[in-house]
Nucleic acid binder design. Structure first.
Length: 802
RNA sequence: GCGGGCAUGGUGGAAUGGCAGACACGUUGGUCUUAGGAACCAAUGCUUACAGCGUGCAAGUUCGAGUCUUGUUGCCCGCACCA
């Protein structure tokens, strides 16, 4: 017997798979298709992290199992390569971002290949490749033509030191991460995508997909549908202030109004607001804070009462003060609220601080102590025609009244906001739009796609906050596609999310230069059958790509409404100390070291065995060694192989049970228990002192998806025939998964008092009778009244005695 | 703050409402060995051990709760320009 020389074996099989294109997929109508997908990585300069192989190995196991089950499997990989870190690295080291990307991709690819993942590398895509982003731009143009892309004034983070727009991540505690200068909010005209037009469908169609419940609820909450009403308040200034509320029933309790510090009405009223100086100071303060800071409930409420203008409550014509406060956001609802301190927690705190009166309109709580927000039990009081109604009745009554009187209307609102689709950065897809002084924003002709990123000398954002592209005259100056007159190109680029919103479509036909993918390929491969990715992508990437997909469905480009049939999530891999792995904490493990010292099969096995796939788990070198030990034992089995073409009787049930367990557990992502079952089986095999050929062969196939290299090598070594990749998955006989006798527990009133052996198919009455014969049980129930007797098949007998 | 989640031995974790701790790691003792970060064998939740106690804490439902319900504490993740 040779040594288990994993380095040689792994290189050998990886070369065989490459040379033979073992995992290359083509359309084949004779087989059922299966399209598993993992999130393609951002090729960072740090290289692969031990967190990457966890989801990749998991889906690889499923892909390999599906192939053995006779499916035509498309398991692709690519690179989500536009982004900030590459650009920042390029700026710092004066290397072109494309060059940085090329190096990082090469490194990542080499690392991924060393793990024996069964990707179809012929279908590799890269979002920064002009042949790819041509179609990203094409999709944007279709959205523009459909009216879903528009320009709007948006707040951006503005570094007062670098004089440039910052990503949220670059803002640390209100100052610029790089230069430490204060960061303020600044209005900027930005390209937006109208994802809100799809809000209802994105919500409704969740019922048609098989996502984990927590993913569905996270998306539903992010979309944040609420039903309520818009109410028009007139003001002493003559203008109307429209508010959105989910509690129109409390309208009689509205004792003041609050508008966001950025509300446009403030500018309009600047001549009549007597304390404009105070207002301006407050606006400047608010501009420094993020939405997150502003809506924090624990913080002290702040605000300024507008002097010189009042709102008028439409139900009772009472004049009420108008405040500006940063807890009201421009981005939600109408940017103005009616405040009902008696029945809203934030309003209550604000009113307490500013000494604003409260009016109780729903009875049931103690509004002196806290706001009473319960809708289910309260009864309306002090509310004119609604007095005496339940909250639900009042909601309907007031909405009818608002619509009848024209003072308001029913309104569905979403928390979901439109997608800011422009970055003032270099390393992204150029937005294919021209601004013509005569024609406005004009799409460039599709024949001019891809609109390539021009070469620039500096990737640093410009002093005026525009993209570096704005400095390239040859790029900027062009002619209007419509009128032929002089015009200027859009110089902003798309956010990284653009390329990742449709990459799974390109995998189906990655080299097509006529369409983003052929109809035949899309019809055959879509939808993605199973998409696994991180929980952190639930509300952005996952929602964005569903939105793009639905748009493309409406355009007749893709054949199905939803891109992903099933979505699951993996947990993070933490450092050995249980903290998030990071360079600064010094707890990073490099997968290359593990592959070199223990082998890819051990790494794969450990990543799957380390804990529940869906939860975070800390790294453990000791446990890695444990997995290596298991593979060593599998290797050594070849020294005790005996003849035999069926399972030996003493192992027959164990084999059948293990095959069933592994087959089922892989489907539910319970890789850790699947591996545990194989370890148990190995323990039993070793106890017999030998293994026969049938048993070894089946064990190797069972383990193959987890540890593909060692199992292929042993399969070949043992002369079991062609590679495992062309074998069939092992099957089990349900009838042979049952033991003849089982040990059951006997409980007295729920406490275990004895254990007895019974035939597996024993009847309840017989089991109970047998239990009572046990000396301990007989003694325990003597002289007591038996209240109840239960038998749980194959598990226990419970005798309730008094 | 809002949203999602988690809490079980020395460690990672198992457990369709039915015998808590599978499977590993670690530790201890032993065998073999010139040697051991090798292999093999045995033990290993805790305690005042013929028994009792144990799944963050407090209640509840049930014949029976790690699992369901309510409350509570602590921790993790996301929050829209990181990917």
């Amino acid at each position: 017997m040779n040594q288990y020389d994993f380095q040689t074996i792994e290189k050998k099989w990886q070369k065989i798979w490459d040379d033979r294109k073992t995992f290359h997929a083509e359309i084949d109508y004779s087989k059922p298709k299966f399209y598993p997908l993992v999130e393609f990585p951002y090729p960072s300069g740090q290289g692969l992290h031990v967190g990457h192989p966890r989801p990749y190995t998991a889906m690889d196991i499923i892909a390999r199992k599906r192939r053995l089950e006779g499916y035509n499997v498309l398991f692709p990989m690519g690179w989500d390569a536009f982004g900030l870190p590459t650009e920042n690295f390029a700026i710092k080291n004066h290397i072109h971002p494309a060059e940085v990307t090329r190096k990082n991709v090469a490194h990542f690819k080499e690392q991924l290949k060393s793990l024996g993942l069964s990707f179809d590398w012929d279908r590799e895509v890269n979002t920064t490749d002009p042949d790819y982003y041509k179609w990203t731009q094409w999709i944007f143009l279709q959205m523009f033509k459909a009216g879903l892309a528009y320009k709007s004034e948006m707040n951006v983070n503005w570094c007062t030191g670098c004089k440039c727009v910052l990503a949220n991540e670059e803002v640390v505690n209100g100052v610029c991460e790089r230069c430490g200068a204060p960061v303020i909010h600044k209005e900027k005209s930005q390209w937006m995508l109208k994802i809100t037009a799809y809000a209802q469908r994105l919500l409704d169609d969740l019922k048609d997909v098989n996502y984990l419940d927590r993913i569905k609820s996270a998306q539903a909450n992010w979309i944040g549908r609420s039903t309520g009403a818009e109410v028009d308040f007139s003001t002493t200034a003559g203008d109307t202030l429209t508010v959105y509320t989910t509690r129109p029933d409390t309208l009689f309790g509205a004792t003041y109004m609050v508008i966001s510090p950025e509300h446009p009405m403030i500018e309009k009223w600047s001549s009549i607001i007597q304390n404009m100086d105070e207002v301006k100071v407050y606006q400047a303060e608010a501009a420094k804070k993020s939405d997150f800071e502003r809506t924090e409930i624990n913080k002290e409420k702040t605000g300024v009462c507008l002097q010189g203008v009042k709102g008028i409550n439409p139900v009772n014509n009472e004049e009420i003060p108008i405040y500006i406060s940063d807890y009201v956001l421009t981005s939600y609802g109408t940017g103005a609220i009616m405040a009902v301190p008696a029945h809203d927690t934030r309003d209550w705190e604000f009113a307490k601080k500013f000494g604003i009166p409260m009016v109780e309109v729903v009875k049931g709580g103690d509004i002196e102590k806290e706001a009473f927000t319960d809708c289910a039990t309260g009864v309306m009081v002090n509310s004119g025609f609604m007095t005496g109604m339940t909250v639900d009745e009042a909601k309907e009554a007031i909405k009818d009244w608002l619509e009848k009187t024209g003072k308001g209307r029913r309104k569905v609102n979403f928390k979901l906001r439109d997608w800011v689709f422009a970055r003032q950065r270099y390393w992204g897809e150029p937005i294919p739009i021209v601004k013509c002084p005569k024609c406005g924003y004009v799409a460039i002709p599709e024949s001019e796609l891809p609109l390539r990123l021009p070469e620039v000398d500096s990737y640093t954002p410009t002093e005026d906050g525009e993209s570096p592209l704005s400095k390239i005259d040859s790029f900027v100056n062009t002619t209007c596609p419509k009128c032929g007159g002089p015009a200027k190109r859009e110089t902003d680029t798309m956010p990284q999310w653009a390329g990742s919103s449709w990459y799974f479509l390109r995998y189906t036909d990655p080299h097509n230069d006529k369409e983003l993918a052929s109809k035949e390929a899309l019809d055959y491969w879509l939808p993605v059958d199973w998409y696994n990715g991180g929980m952190e992508h639930t509300t952005l990437h996952l929602l964005y790509s569903r939105f793009w997909h639905k748009f493309l469905y409406d355009q007749g480009v893709v054949p199905c409404k939803e891109p992903y049939l099933k979505r699951t999530s993996h947990g993070m891999v933490l450092g050995e100390n249980g903290e998030k792995m990071s360079k600064s904490r010094g707890n990073v493990t490099n997968p290359d070291d593990i592959v070199r010292d223990y082998g890819a099969d051990t790494l794969r096995l450990y990543e799957m065995f380390m804990g529940d796939f869906q939860s975070a788990a800390p790294w453990s070198m000791n446990s890695v060694r444990g997995c290596k030990r298991f593979l060593d034992r599998i290797w050594r089995l070849q020294s005790c192989v005996i003849d035999g073409d069926s399972y030996r009787p003493e192992l027959e049930i164990s084999f059948n049970k293990t095959i069933r367990k592994v087959s089922e557990d892989v489907e539910t992502l319970k890789f850790n228990t699947a591996i545990a079952a194989m370890m148990s089986l190995l323990n039993e095999i070793e106890a017999t002192g030998s293994i026969n050929k049938k048993e070894y062969r089946d064990l190797l196939i069972l383990l193959n998806p987890f540890a593909p290299h060692i199992t292929e090598e042993l399969f070949e070594e043992m002369g079991f025939g062609s590679p495992i990749t062309s074998q069939s998955w092992v099957t089990y006989d349900p009838a042979k998964c049952v033991d003849a006798t089982v040990e059951i527990a006997v409980q007295i009133s729920g406490k275990v008092r004895a254990r007895i052996q019974v035939p597996a198919d024993i009847e309840a009455a017989d089991a109970i009778a047998l239990a009572k014969q046990d000396p301990k049980i007989a003694a325990a129930i003597e002289g007591k009244t038996i209240v109840k007797e239960l038998y749980v098949k194959g598990k226990l007998v419970n005798i309730v005695a008094k």
